[in-house]
Computed example of a mutant assay.
Amino acid sequence: MNMFRITAAMLALCMSLMSVPVSAGNGNVSGNPEYQVDAPPAYAMVADAVIARPLLIAGTIIGAGLFVVTLPFTALGGGVDRAGQALVVEPGKAAFVRCLGCTKDGYNNHDD
């Protein structure tokens, strides 16, 4: 088979597997609240990895640059903590401290 047919077959296989619903879901058979974690669907994971994460990383880099450029002015106004939080920390947390496809920050995404 040529490379185009192999690539098309692999793409069709991946797309068909992503359309299958996740059987694990949020079914908590044991009753233990530790196992009630957010289980995002495959399409959310793919969109997060391909679209959201690169944009959030770029936003973190741009925000850090803006923070450095505006640092003298924010220091005079006394808002360095708020500016750093809004421009660098929040986009960084959304980009790096979040499971793939999850909507909440952090590693312990429980349904509390």
Rank of each mutant, 00 (worst) to 15 (best):
M1Q: 07
M1S: 14
N2F: 07
M3R: 12
M3V: 02
F4V: 13
R5A: 08
I6T: 12
T7W: 12
T7M: 08
T7G: 09
A8N: 05
A8K: 10
A8T: 09
A9T: 15
M10F: 10
M10L: 04
L11G: 03
L11R: 13
A12L: 10
L13K: 01
L13Q: 11
L13E: 13
C14G: 14
M15S: 13
S16A: 14
L17P: 10
M18P: 03
M18G: 08
V22P: 08
V22T: 11
V22I: 12
S23F: 13
S23D: 03
S23K: 10
A24L: 03
A24V: 02
A24E: 04
A24G: 04
G25D: 13
G25N: 06
N26I: 03
N26R: 05
N28S: 08
S30R: 09
G31P: 14
G31I: 11
G31H: 09
G31Y: 13
N32A: 03
N32R: 02
Q36P: 00
Q36L: 12
V37Q: 01
D38H: 02
D38V: 06
D38G: 03
A39W: 12
A39L: 03
P40M: 06
P41R: 03
P41C: 01
P41F: 01
P41L: 03
A42V: 00
Y43I: 04
Y43W: 00
Y43S: 07
A44V: 00
A44R: 02
A44G: 07
M45R: 01
M45P: 01
M45W: 03
V46D: 02
A47W: 00
A47G: 01
A52M: 00
R53T: 07
R53G: 04
P54K: 07
P54M: 05
P54Y: 07
P54F: 12
L56V: 04
A58H: 04
G59F: 11
G59N: 07
G59C: 03
T60Q: 07
I61H: 11
I61V: 09
I62A: 11
A64G: 11
G65C: 04
L66G: 04
F67N: 12
F67H: 06
F67Q: 06
F67G: 14
F67L: 14
V68Y: 06
V68L: 13
V68F: 13
V69W: 04
T70W: 12
T70S: 06
L71Y: 05
L71K: 01
P72S: 08
P72D: 08
P72N: 04
F73I: 05
F73S: 06
F73C: 01
T74Y: 14
A75G: 14
G77H: 09
G78D: 04
G79P: 04
D81P: 04
R82L: 14
R82D: 13
A83L: 08
A83N: 05
G84M: 09
L87R: 08
L87S: 02
V88Y: 07
V89K: 14
V89T: 15
V89C: 10
V89D: 10
E90L: 15
P91A: 06
K93G: 10
K93D: 14
A94P: 01
A95R: 07
A95F: 15
F96P: 04
F96N: 05
F96W: 10
V97H: 08
L100A: 07
L100H: 10
L100T: 10
G101D: 14
G101R: 05
K104S: 13
D105Q: 09
G106Y: 01
Y107T: 12
Y107C: 08
N108Q: 07
N108Y: 09
